[in-house]
Computed example of a mutant assay.
Amino acid sequence: MLKKLTGTGLLICLLVSPPALAQDLLEKVLGETIYVPAYSRVFSHPNRSDLLAATLAVHNVDPSTSLTLKSVDYHDEDGTLLRSVLEKPVELAPLQSKTVLIPINDTSGGVGANFLVVWTSDQPALSPIAEAIMTSGSGGPGPSFSSRGRVIERKLP
């Protein structure tokens, strides 16, 4: 039985059940460009910041279709390309993952660093999960968090 939510019930439902993201849908596509926020430092006070290592993880979630990572580019907070991370395209078999590390001592990206991940497939495939995991790596308590990528371009079958 469906119940119409109003007032507080609707607010709680919206807070607990965020809308589905494009990459969480079961639509199969031939390729995408995914923007993934990454951070080489975060500020906790006006004159204090913590350095972070960023690990980009790309997971092929399709259980039956391979995909090819065409490029993974690392940009700084001004949008300037710092480097292309892949030397050549990388094929990801079904359920395979690829990781890339930006070490804690590399602060070139700044607070607003990001990755652009471009992938393709010969057959329609599920969108991979692309996320960055940032850690302080200091051995003690420090900031650790992740950010999920956002599809900014899609190639439909």
Rank of each mutant, 00 (worst) to 15 (best):
K4V: 12
G9Y: 11
L15K: 11
V16L: 15
S17K: 05
P18H: 04
P19Y: 01
P19K: 06
L21M: 15
L25S: 12
L26G: 13
K28N: 06
K28D: 01
V29G: 05
V29F: 04
V29N: 00
L30A: 12
L30N: 11
L30V: 08
E32T: 15
E32N: 14
E32C: 15
R41K: 08
R41N: 10
S44Y: 13
N47I: 09
N47A: 07
S49N: 15
S49M: 02
D50K: 04
A54M: 14
V61Y: 06
V61E: 13
P63H: 07
P63V: 09
S66H: 02
L67N: 02
K70M: 05
S71I: 11
Y74W: 10
H75E: 01
H75K: 08
D76R: 00
E77T: 05
D78F: 03
G79D: 02
L82G: 03
V85K: 11
V85W: 00
E87Q: 12
K88D: 06
L92N: 05
A93Q: 14
Q96D: 14
K98C: 02
T99R: 08
L101R: 10
P103L: 14
I104L: 09
D106K: 10
D106R: 10
S108T: 12
G110M: 09
A113R: 10
A113C: 10
N114I: 02
F115I: 01
V118R: 14
V118D: 07
W119T: 04
W119Y: 13
W119F: 15
T120N: 13
D122T: 13
A125S: 13
L126E: 00
P128D: 05
A130T: 13
A130C: 14
A130G: 06
A132T: 14
T135H: 12
S138E: 05
G140T: 14
P143C: 11
S146K: 03
S147K: 13
S147P: 00
R154H: 03
